[in-house]
Amino acid sequence: MIGARGAGSLIPAIVGALVALVIALLGTTLTDTGPWYQALARPRWTPPDAAFGIIWMVALALWAAAAVAAWRAAPTHREAEASVGLFALTGFLNILWSLLFFRLKRPDLALAEGAVLWLSVVGLLVASARVSRTAAILLLPYLAWVSMAVAFTWEIVRLNRPFG
């Protein structure tokens, strides 16, 4: 019989997919690209508005797959729980960025939080690489997109400050 963390169990994949979907839905709910956002000066290299949702969905799907791979590969229950905690932290920080940037209209605070998010993703990648090369590889696009989001936020702050 294969346990919940076994390769044959669908439970981790279902949970991972549901968590990624919740993060995406919360992020989408908090995101308002209406008049305030449209009035912001943005860098020339800003992706089209439609690209953001698509890229976030792909990045979060890979994030969820990485979470499942890291959890399954963790050699002990304690390491599996620690992995889940790190993934949960990055998910929370993802949602918090949207809240700060769009709902509170504070790109400056979102920039500071984005730096914490970026560091958490790097830490997550390093920790995941210790147990699963697959998980680490799956996290690379997520790290790249978070890096772009932080650079984008930096430019928004630079071009539009002060806030608050």
Rank of each mutant, 00 (worst) to 15 (best):
G8V: 13
S9Q: 05
S9M: 09
S9R: 05
L10Q: 08
I11S: 02
P12Y: 03
P12N: 03
P12L: 03
I14D: 01
V15M: 01
A17P: 08
L18A: 14
A20K: 00
I23N: 10
I23H: 01
T28L: 12
T28S: 10
T28G: 13
L30G: 02
L30Y: 07
T33A: 15
G34V: 15
P35L: 03
A39N: 15
A39P: 08
A39K: 15
A39L: 05
L40M: 15
R42Q: 15
P43L: 13
W45T: 15
W45A: 12
T46E: 15
P47F: 12
P48A: 11
P48M: 15
P48Y: 08
D49S: 11
A50Q: 12
A50W: 13
A51C: 09
G53N: 14
W56Q: 07
M57H: 04
V58C: 13
A59K: 01
A59L: 03
L60E: 03
A61P: 06
L62E: 00
L62P: 01
W63Q: 00
W63P: 03
A65N: 11
A65P: 00
A69S: 05
W71V: 05
W71F: 04
P75R: 03
T76I: 06
H77K: 03
E79S: 09
E79K: 03
E79C: 01
A80K: 10
A80P: 09
A82C: 00
A82Y: 02
S83I: 11
G85P: 09
L86W: 08
F87I: 07
A88C: 01
L89Y: 14
T90C: 09
T90Y: 04
T90A: 06
F92H: 00
L93H: 10
N94Y: 06
I95N: 10
L96M: 09
L96N: 02
L99W: 06
L100W: 07
F101K: 09
F102Y: 14
F102R: 11
F102D: 02
R103Y: 11
L104T: 14
K105F: 12
K105G: 10
R106F: 05
P107I: 15
P107Y: 08
P107R: 08
L109H: 14
L109E: 01
A110C: 06
E113N: 12
A115D: 13
L117I: 15
S120T: 15
L124W: 06
V126G: 10
A129L: 07
V131W: 03
S132L: 02
A135T: 11
A135K: 00
A135F: 01
A135V: 08
A136W: 01
I137H: 02
L138M: 09
L140C: 00
P141F: 01
A144Q: 11
A144P: 10
W145V: 05
W145E: 00
V146E: 04
V146Y: 06
V146G: 02
A149R: 00
A149N: 11
A149Y: 04
A151L: 12
F152M: 13
F152Q: 09
T153R: 03
